[in-house]
Structure formats: structure tokens, C-alpha cells
């Protein structure tokens, strides 16, 4: 069970109009993996993440989440998704944290966290409250539970967003540049929270520009450029001895 496949992606293609953003991406994620996805802007990192939970629909390829097929392409070349209710259930195995937080502004911190368990899973408020309070303590925002998001700092907002995603008890967490919209002095608190999850062996994919974070926390790094995974491997190895010239160029430029 230790090598249980959580995500399996094969030959994924995604276009926006005529612009090919992902050109045949394949990778696998095992239980407990912490995958850092790095690469220059416009390389398709975020799009790849968004394809996994149907925020973007793919034109070709195969996506499997915890052994269940979300989308697959037949011999006829037509890409088919699981039916809507099924696809929603499969995607619920993944929680997502966005660059722009996307908290619900009309809901308090606590309400943001319990909204999905109540509406989507049909849990009662009483049933979800213990977990919600535990999550609030975990991200250090128990005192802010009755505040509206507008009154929080960026770092606090992002920690609420993390707690909100965790409230649905996902098997996999997707982080889409979680610190890119934050002031530098606020990134630390968010990265600490993500690192804490990594220490608990939560399976996660993190699209990030924080190279030291990628190097120290991830179990595997994917370097993407121009819609392809150029290089994948252990982060320590990749950062010190990048094999591909494009990886070298990127790391030299950014470090």
C-alpha cells in the first residue's frame, strides 16, 4: 500500500484555442509524495494542476485519481470524462489552494471552512464543528473564526483557504502558487503550514516559485517548460546537478 498510486496522468494535452499549453504530459504521484512543480511563467504548471480537478478540460490524455478514471481518450482520439456527479466525487479527493485565496467574502472564517462539508457532504453543523475547530487551531486562526476574510492579512487568508480545503478531508492537496500573491514577510507563515502537512505525509502537488521550499520540502521535483515536463527527480539532485540544459538555464536564472 505504500506505493499506492494517487495520481496517474498520461499523455495529457491541453490547448486554449490554437495555443497548446500542455503537450503530452505524463507523471505519477504515489501516496505521501510531495511534488514540487517548478518552471518559468507560462510553462503550463498551473494549467496542469487545474486539469487534475476539472477546472480546465483536457483535449486528449488520461487522468486517474486514486485508481478512478476521471478522463480518458479512446482509440478514436475522443477524450471522455466521467459523468458529472461521478467526476465531482472523484475530484473531491483533491483539495485546492489558489494563488488569489478565493475565500467566500460573505462568510466568516469558520463559515468558509464548514460551508462545503455542510452543503456538499450534507453534514450537520454539529458534526463538522470539532474538525473545523481543530483545523482552525492547526492553522493558528482560532481567534479569527468569526472575522470576515476582508479583515485578514494575505497570509491569514491563505491559511484559512488551506483549512477550508482540508475540511473536506481530501487525499491529495493541490497548491497553485500559494505564496505568489503574498508580501514577502507573509510567505513564511503559509510555507510553514504547508511544510507541516508535508511532515504529516499528506500527498501534495505544489506549483511554486519558492525554490528553497521546493528543494527542502518536496520528495520529488518536476521541472516544466513550454508545456512539457523536461526533468523530474529528487530535488536535491535536480537543484545541484540539473541534467537538462533548460533546467540549468532556469535554475541559474532564478537562484
Amino acid at each position: 500500500m505504500t506505493n499506492k498510486q494517487m495520481i496517474s496522468v498520461r499523455d495529457l494535452h491541453k490547448r486554449f484555442g490554437t495555443l497548446a499549453v500542455l503537450k503530452g504530459v505524463s507523471f505519477e504521484v504515489a501516496l505521501g509524495d510531495v511534488i514540487a512543480i517548478i518552471g518559468p511563467s507560462g510553462s503550463g504548471k498551473s494549467t496542469l494542476l487545474r486539469c487534475l480537478n476539472r477546472l480546465e478540460t483536457i483535449q486528449r490524455g488520461h487522468i486517474e485519481i486514486a485508481g478512478e478514471v476521471l478522463a480518458t481518450t479512446g482509440a478514436d482520439g475522443v477524450c471522455r470524462y466521467a459523468v458529472d456527479a461521478e467526476a465531482r466525487r472523484i475530484c473531491r479527493r483533491m483539495g485546492m489552494v489558489f494563488q488569489q485565496f478565493n475565500l467566500f467574502p460573505h462568510r466568516t472564517v469558520l463559515q468558509n471552512i464548514i460551508e462545503a462539508p455542510m452543503t456538499v457532504q450534507g453534514l450537520s453543523r454539529a458534526a463538522i464543528m470539532p474538525k473545523a475547530e481543530e483545523l482552525l487551531r492547526k492553522v493558528g486562526l482560532f481567534e479569527k473564526r468569526d472575522s470576515y476574510p476582508a479583515l485578514l492579512s494575505g497570509g491569514q487568508k491563505q491559511r484559512v483557504a488551506i483549512a477550508r480545503a482540508l475540511a473536506m478531508a481530501p487525499d491529495i492537496m493541490l497548491f497553485d502558487e500559494p505564496t505568489s500573491a503574498l508580501d514577502p514577510e507573509l510567505t513564511g507563515e503559509v510555507l510553514r503550514t504547508i511544510r507541516q502537512l508535508a511532515d504529516e505525509h499528506v500527498t501534495m502537488l505544489v506549483v511554486t516559485h519558492e525554490m528553497s521550499f521546493a528543494r527542502d520540502v518536496s520528495t520529488r521535483a518536476l521541472f516544466m517548460d513550454d508545456g512539457e515536463i523536461v526533468e523530474a527527480g529528487a530535488p536535491a539532485e535536480m537543484f545541484s546537478h540539473p541534467k537538462h540544459s533548460r533546467t540549468q538555464a532556469f535554475l541559474e536564472h532564478i537562484l
Binding site: 478565493n102 456538499v120 480545503a165 493541490l174
Partner: peptide, 25 residues
Amino acid sequence: RGQYEAAKALGFSYAQTMRRIVLPQ
């Protein structure tokens, strides 16, 4: 758009997204 995306990522259906997230705002 981010509101729809956050709701979708949390598993909301379109009807739930409208009723609980979009229309109250």
C-alpha cells in the same frame, strides 16, 4: 471567477454554487 473555481474545487454543483456562494453575494 475565482468564487466559482473555489466552489467547484470543493465539490459544489452548479446549483449549490449559485445558491450558496454566488447569489448571496
